[in-house]
Amino acid sequence: MDSKFIQQFYQDKRGETWWQDIDPLCRFIMCLSLSVATFTIGSWQMGLCAVIFGFIIAGCTKKVKFYMGMLLLVFISAGILGAIVRIPPHLNDGGAIAFTIFGVSVPMSALMNYLDYLLMMEGFAGLLIVYFLTTEMRDICYCLERKGMSPKGTFLVLVAFSMITSIQQKLSNVRESQSARGIEMEGNFGVKVKTIIPILFPVIISSVTSVEERTLAMNARAFGASRHNSHLRNLKKAGALDIGLMWICVAVSVLLIVLF
């Protein structure tokens, strides 16, 4: 009698939540179409709606903390860039003054322009971020293979992404071994940064050089021997609901672009 763990391989994998149960490629097109609409329309209202939509998805999939963290990074970078490209050209616009800073009066129109940009970026990036936060790379690759992408290509994508984990793991091992050689690794954030920097580049290089060994190992597992791989883990095929939702999002995006 096969264990529960093995039994799951006999069934198509379902997503843990309603969002993750939608076909990964359909989900991607949904997010992409809405984020293109957000970018094209460029208004703070559309941006805010996109951010809220992202929050709903992140909330359902228990990824709110990560989502907020990524949004914060976007906020900082877009905030700085927006302050440079959106405010100065509108400083001489007439109308009500929103606020004065360092003796410079910032008109309402400049502020609104800035907010449009900031929230547009948050919405645009946020939708793509929430997609990648809630979708495993291997599921994306599985769907691409189903659409005809070569198994070699998808494997290379997966290996590239797994390099991140591999580098993290190697970094952790090297830090532990450096600690075991008497180099202080424990301490506040400053100490940690100071100790990571000298080893970061060599660790990345050594992770890359270990690709040769991994290539040989995959070679020993008949990598590329067949044009059509089979899969232990199968995802359910995109159903009418998945495709329907996808087209609704595309239609809504097109409509919004046309209207606004």
């Binding site: 006999y10 995959m218 590329g224 089979s230 899969h231």
Partner: peptide
Amino acid sequence: GIGLENLGIEHDAMI
């Protein structure tokens, strides 16, 4: 199972 996937072996046989 990686090698079996690469060879396109049938699902249940792989398991």
